[in-house]
Design a protein around this nucleic acid. Structure first.
Length: 861
RNA sequence: GCCGCCGUAGCUCAGUGGUAGAGCGCAUCCUUGGUAAGGCUGAGGUCGGCAGUUCAAUCCUGCCCGGCGGCACCA
């Protein structure tokens, strides 16, 4: 008997797939198409377990859909621009371009080793000039359409990475990559007008029914649409300079206008700045407001503080009612108008503030069932539904009706307007970095900012950028930026900012549909393949990449480059790969490979392989370099083969949850691979002639086979790969009851059927093993090109059912009945059964419940 | 605070309105020409807690407890 040797078997089949060009995507009209895509990797240099999991998941889908007769597109590329290359350049003096392409070469070979059913002919990297040049082309289209603009604004500046960050890239006030506290800087910046699509980005989330709710909710929160009212207060008495037209505020609660107590402005509101310039005390207060931290915890606990400006405004519905104007630290300049009217009774923040400064608290929304005479607000604002009272013409209305009425009244008086506002900001896309896609515009002293004509594209990066020191290598290049203005022919300077790498990844899926096309996107190919039917990646991109890609798709559709308005019809967010952590007594982290686990009874202890020094087993955490709890895929491939690694990572947990890597687990998968092979190896090549009628035993095996096909098919369809694999384990265990040695001809034939199904069922998970097994039993061609097995519904269930019999809900016996037996018939069988009868002695039968093919319950007393 | 997910064997996880399952680990035994291995058998579970619906609840409903994730001074 030959031992299974993945080191020989696996490369052999990869070569066979390449030889057959098995995974080339071909648009075939009349055949249903399926586009499966995993988020493409950043070429950091090494494949990690997260990649193994991500791409194995996608590969299961790709192989399964192919077996199901779909024309499948499953491509691979590289998200190749970005800072790590520049950092490597600075640290090690290498060229970012060479570094990146070297990494790509290494990772490509590692990915190929995984045996993925990928059409490698479509591979590209975003740093290929063929790619980013075409990105510049559609960037110019958006420019022309007014979706790109430049403005001076306060931006997030990452002092470590020395670049601007988009709002989405600032997490808890820190740069998402560097972790450095972000500074505010006023810069000329390039923006993409994502807010023009805010409504559609929210509204069409509803159509993405194959996206996780979680991601849709996160995007909805991020866009943060709210309907409300913008209106102006007139000043009473003294009017500050520049505010002759009043003080504009935004509110979502115009129904509570009669509960107004004061008006608040943000510390960096123009009025506050004006006052601060004139009065050092105000300036000191504003400075104090700014000192507050930016983290959630700090904001949470920050006390509300205010400064009474001395100004007063008139209530819009009662000119004799005057409200004081405060500068308050809890008001944000970059939301709404940076000014609010406060209704303490129905807003907690306003209430905290009002209590502190002794301002009136007047309830105007009466909760259902409350008595208007006695209803009072304590330390908790009432924000629920109710009936408006104490509110003149709004009295008696519910909250929604009162909102509409208040807005109508304000609009009629010309004081303001019902408005929808968003938390979403336009996307700042310029980065002051050299290793990125150049923005195709020039600055001309005479003509200003001039977009280049498409005829001069691509604007390629120079090959001799100098990355040895911090800052923008493109800006300091001696000659690159000097050019001529396409409008006037005079001297001009190229824009030296490059595009955010999220721009690169916002359309790559469309380019994959035809990587040869002259134009950025081949309309015909995109129309055939898009949208991506199944997109797979990490949850960390829920509001970054996934939002940008949706926006760019819509914008490109409006420029006529695409037909779809949503790029990803189905989204799956997979969990992370985790591992136990280990530390020495001195607290130093230790890698799993340096540790051996010893079981002492039921407790596990760890020690260093080298010295035997005891090691503390810590928490299970995401594999990371800092905790040193990583396991290198190539070392696993070397020992157990690729299939065992794939199998384990797919079988360990549901794909959306974290998977915990363990040596024991991968060893279990490896043993499974060997047992599968042994089972196939034991099948004789001489088989009985077809048509041998199956006896009971053969029939039982056929039932097992067909049930397994059904269960695995359903599991794969619903992304429960781990369940599917669990069924395959059970299938293999079940096969042991039907050994080839000494089997009768009919059983041997049933075994052949079982194995033929088995090879095809494991093909998406362990493709190399599947080929070897398929070939062993004389399967035709490659299993990668074989159709998915069908199941016979009649065989996927038993002919004879074992029905448990309960008496008063407790199991008291069982009977065997033909499948589909009628309740009356079953009842008779049960009551005739001597064992059951014994159980019922002395009891009166009240009721007999027969659930067809399931169970019988006798209620007796 | 709001929203979402999770709680089943020692561990990692399947599963189902009716009989509780896999891998790993553990124990017993077998094999010793698959051997830095393989196989047989087995033990181990109030299915987080309480209540409700039901003939019957691990599963449905409600409340509670515990863990994880996202959002949040957004007017």
């Amino acid at each position: 008997m030959a031992r299974y040797n993945p080191k020989e078997v696996e490369p052999k089949w990869r070569a066979a797939w390449a030889e057959a060009d098995a995974f080339r995507a071909k648009a075939e009209p009349g055949k249903p198409k399926y586009y499966v895509l995993e988020m493409f990797p950043y070429p950091s240099g090494r494949l990690h377990m997260g990649h193994v999991r991500n791409y194995s998941l996608g590969d299961v889908i790709a192989r399964y859909k192919r077996a199901r007769g779909f024309a499948v597109l499953h491509p691979m590329g590289w998200d190749a621009f970005g800072l790590p290359a520049e950092n490597a350049a600075m640290e090690r003096g290498v060229d970012p371009k060479a570094w990146t392409y070297d990494n790509i070469a290494r990772m490509r070979s590692e990915l190929k080793e995984l045996g993925l059913a990928i059409d490698w002919s479509r591979e590209f990297a975003t740093c290929d000039v063929d790619y980013y040049g075409r990105q510049q082309s559609w960037f110019l289209d958006l420019f022309k359409a007014g979706l790109v603009y430049r403005k001076e604004s306060v931006v997030n500046w990452d002092p470590v990475d020395q670049t601007v960050l988009a709002n989405e890239q600032v997490v808890d006030g820190r740069g998402w990559r560097s972790g450095a506290p972000v500074e505010k800087r006023k810069l000329n910046q390039w923006f993409l007008r994502i807010t023009a699509y805010a409504d559609e980005l929210v509204d069409s989330l509803k159509t993405l029914d194959r996206w996780p709710d979680k991601v849709r909710i996160m995007q909805e929160n991020w866009i943060g649409r709210s309907q409300g009212l913008k209106f102006s207060f007139d000043f009473a008495g003294q009017t500050p300079a520049g505010f002759e037209r009043g003080l504009e505020v935004y509110t979502t609660r115009p129904d509570t206008l009669f509960g107004a107590s004061f008006v608040g402005i943000a510390p960096d509101h123009p009025l506050a700045e004006q006052l601060a310039a004139a009065d050092p005390n105000v300036a000191a207060f504003v400075a104090e407001c700014r000192r507050g931290g930016v983290s959630e915890a700090e904001i949470e606990t920050a006390e509300k503080i205010g400064w009474h400006t001395g100004f007063k405004v008139k209530h819009p519905f009662d000119p004799n009612w005057e409200l004081p104007v405060y500068i308050a630290n809890f008001i944000l300049m970059d939301y709404g108008t940076g000014a609010i009217f406060a209704c303490p009774a129905h807003d907690q923040r306003d209430l905290d503030f009002a209590r502190k400064y002794g301002l009136p608290v007047r309830p105007v929304v009466l909760p259902p069932g409350a008595d208007p005479a006695t209803f009072e607000i304590g330390e908790e604002a009432y924000t629920g539904p109710g009936t408006i009272f104490n509110s003149s013409f709004l009295d008696g209305k519910d909250v929604e009706a009162a909102k509409a009425e208040a807005i109508a009244r304000i609009e009629a008086e010309g004081r303001g307007q019902g408005t929808t506002i968003y938390r979403l900001r336009d996307w700042g896309v310029a980065r002051q970095r050299g290793w990125g896609c150049p923005i195709p515009v020039v600055h001309c002293a005479k003509c200003g900012v001039v977009a280049l004509p498409k005829s001069v594209l691509p604007v390629a990066l120079p090959d001799d950028l100098e990355f040895g020191k911090p800052g923008n290598a493109l800006a300091r290049h001696p000659t690159w930026k000097h050019t001529t203005c396409p409008t006037c022919g005079g001297p001009a300077e190229r824009e030296t900012d490059t595009l955010d790498t999220f721009v690169d990844s916002s359309w790559y899926f469309a380019r994959f549909t035809d990587t040869e096309a002259e134009e950025p996107i081949s309309k015909a190919a995109a129309d055939y393949w898009l949208p991506v039917d199944q997109y797979i990646g990490g949850i960390e991109h829920a509001v970054l990449h996934l939002l940008y890609a949706r926006f760019v798709t819509k914008a490109l559709a409006d420029q006529g480059l695409l037909s779809v308005r949503e790029p990803f019809a189905g989204l799956f967010t997979q969990g992370m790969v985790t591992h136990e952590t280990y530390r020495k007594q001195n607290g130093e982290w230790v890698e799993p490979r340096e540790v051996e686990i010893v079981a002492e009874g039921k407790t596990r202890r760890a020690r260093l392989v080298e010295t035997g020094e005891p090691v503390v087993i810590g928490d299970v955490e995401k594999m990371s370099k800092s905790k040193r709890n990583t396991v290198a895929p190539e070392e696993i491939f070397e020992v157990y083969g690729v299939d065992a690694a794939r199998l384990f990572v797919l079988s360990d947990s549901p794909p959306e949850r974290d998977a915990q890597w363990s040596t024991g687990g991968v060893e279990g998968a490896w043993r499974f691979v060997n047992r599968v092979w042994a089972e196939f190896d034991s099948q004789p090549s001489e088989l009985p002639a077809a048509g041998t009628p199956p006896g009971d035993k053969a029939e039982a095996l056929r039932v097992l086979t067909h049930r397994t096909v059904k269960a695995v098919t359903e599991a794969v369809e619903s992304f429960r790969f781990n369940s599917g694999i669990a069924r395959l384990y059970e299938f293999l265990n079940g096969l042991k009851d039907f050994p080839a040695a000494g089997a009768s001809p009919d059983v041997l034939a049933a075994r052949q059927e079982a194995l033929a199904a088995f090879a095809r069922l494991i093909a998406p998970f362990t493709p190399h093993l599947a080929e070897e097994c398929w070939s062993q039993i004389g399967g035709e061609g490659l299993v990668a090109e074989a159709p998915w097995p069908d199941f016979d519904p009649a065989l996927s269930q038993d002919a004879v059912k074992v029905l448990p019999v309960q008496v008063n809900g407790k199991r008291r016996g069982e009977i065997r009945a033909p499948a589909g037996a009628e309740p009356a018939e079953v009842e008779k069988m049960v009551l005739d059964d001597p064992e059951i009868a014994r159980r019922l002695e002395g009891l009166t039968i009240r009721k007999v419940i027969v659930v067809k093919d399931r169970i019988v319950n006798i209620v007796a007393a």
